[in-house]
Write a protein that binds this DNA or RNA. Structure first.
Length: 443
RNA sequence: CGGGGCGUGGCUUAGUCUGGUAAAGCGCUCGGUUUGGGACCGAGAGAUCGUAGGUUCGAAUCCUACCGCCCCGACCA
């Protein structure tokens, strides 16, 4: 992408409504625009990040055997009356009527709808296990939206739903998602720790929140330093190997880890002081098993090997990609702007043409740009007629991981300057070698 | 929902207390000088001062109602 053609409205000053880093920087970098309280448009730069987050989530969900579908944002109230949640959900649910006075709602979640899809088509245990997921906008009419995307009213959510014959297989389904989440956050370049969470009326040990550590997180977290050394399951993970999955989950859920909401001082005190770590965290994922709550209410049954009807055991698994984008900024920024994990940076590298009206400089910058494209990278070429300082500031603000600067002085010596975002000073490199490196696809 | 605050060109704000016909910086347009980390000079465009009503000779300013946004609390992906 050429900066001269890219819609990226940067702000030099921070809009006054933004208090926290991610909100401030997303507005300043022209990633999002607020349209109403807790409701945002995604501008090109922000959408690039969001799409990269979604792509990684999607790959890992698919790897774990989940099927992507897409359910609508608007849902009929009738489904929710079946489960009893139409009355139980409260004011967070946005209720609307169409022209025929039919009751609809903007979905805050999709258990009812996915259960309806399941019961319409699946009737045998032989079709199980099944996991259906989608990435779709949700609306929850929060009393108090705040912190930009961190707590919006409309937000994107990847929500997956598992269906199994019994609790034992549902537990394996839960483990699959648990491991898929470990892989997902690792690939997103974020350090997420699974922490036990309140399981609600179902009880048991099958609910975890995935928490990203960031100084500006909403909740205080307590965890064992053992989490620092745990290895993330590789991409050759066998998602059909129930025992291996269970072992990984045990490794990742046995050491103490809890948010302030359910923190247990007595248990915490048994962790050796040298291995106690505390910090602040942002919840970016939440998984839980809820048994037959919806299948009972909505008649989602399958015939088992015993020839009898069984209510399916379900679980649901959420990640908020829009919140992940914000959390990544909370976890990675400095006074100059955003420092993205490279996996979700809006561009892989920035090429700054110091003097676009100097033919030699323009040509060298163009070559670098094409070499990067040929190498499979996604570069941003700043070819605008603008002072260099502004270009550098822009690259820092939007958090391009690597900057390559071409100017007349360096070019005389056949050199360019290279700087990594978030690291120290720039260094010089040979233009030719840089061209080769980019074309070869090395980052 | 309780408490607090704020709505003035695209952005950040001054002006409001003490009423007199809207100001500055940034951004934008044009011309010129510049150009190695957010340049400088000159000339411009751009505002029903959140909305409605009221008081007054006169309202951004005072009064009333409403709308919107932000922060703290309770609540939550």
């Amino acid at each position: 992408m050429r900066a001269s053609r890219f819609f990226m409205p940067l702000l030099k000053e921070t809009p006054k409504e933004a208090e926290i880093a991610s909100h401030r920087l997303m507005l300043r970098a022209g990633m999002i625009r607020q349209q109403a309280a807790g409701i945002y448009s995604w501008l090109p730069l922000g959408l690039r990040v969001l799409n990269k987050v979604n792509a990684i989530i999607r790959e890992e969900m698919n790897r774990a055997g989940a099927n992507e579908i897409l359910m609508p944002t608007l849902q009929s109230a009738d489904l929710w009356r079946e489960s009893g949640r139409y009355d139980a959900y409260g004011k967070e649910m946005l209720r609307i009527q169409d022209r025929h006075k039919r009751d609809l709602l903007y979905g805050p979640t999709n258990e009812e709808m996915v259960t309806d899809i399941f019961r319409s088509y699946v009737s045998s245990y032989k079709s199980l296990p099944l996991n259906l997921y989608h990435i779709q906008w949700k609306f929850r009419d929060e009393v108090r939206p705040r912190f930009g995307l961190m707590r919006g009213r409309e937000f994107l959510m990847k929500d997956a739903y598992s269906f199994d014959l019994d609790e034992a297989s549902a537990r394996t389904a839960y483990h699959r998602m648990f491991v898929a989440y470990l892989r997902t956050f690792e690939r997103l370049g974020l350090r997420a720790i699974p922490m036990r969470a309140d399981t609600g009326p179902i009880g048991g040990d099958l609910s975890h929140e995935f928490i990203i550590l960031a100084d500006t997180g909403e909740s205080e977290v307590f965890f064992h330093t053992d989490y620092n050394g745990l290895e993330t399951p590789g991409e050759n993970t066998d998602f059909d190997d129930a025992d291996a999955l269970a072992k990984t989950v045990a490794d990742w859920s046995t050491p103490y880890a809890a948010t302030d909401e359910i923190h247990d001082e007595a248990e915490w005190s048994r962790v050796p002081a040298a291995q106690q770590a505390t910090g602040r965290g942002i919840e970016v994922g939440h998984i839980f098993y809820f048994g037959t709550k919806y299948s009972d209410a909505m008649g989602a049954n399958v015939t088992g090997p015993d020839g009898k009807e069984h209510s399916v055991h379900m679980g649901s698994y959420g990640i908020g990609p829009s919140r992940v984008a914000a959390a990544a900024i909370e976890a990675g920024h400095d006074e100059n702007g955003i420092i993205w994990p490279s996996a979700i940076a809006p561009f892989d590298l920035g090429i700054i043409s110091m003097k676009p009206d100097d033919a030699a400089v323009a040509e060298a910058a163009e070559k670098l740009y094409r070499a990067a494209l040929a190498g499979g990278q996604d570069p941003l070429l700043d070819d605008r007629d603008m002072r260099a300082g502004q270009k550098f500031a822009a690259m820092d603000l939007v958090g391009v991981p690597e900057q390559i600067t071409v100017g007349p002085r360096g070019l005389e010596k056949g050199e360019v300057e290279v700087k990594k975002r978030g690291e120290g000073d720039k260094s010089t490199a040979s233009l030719d070698e840089t061209l080769n490196r980019l074309a070869a696809g090395a980052n």
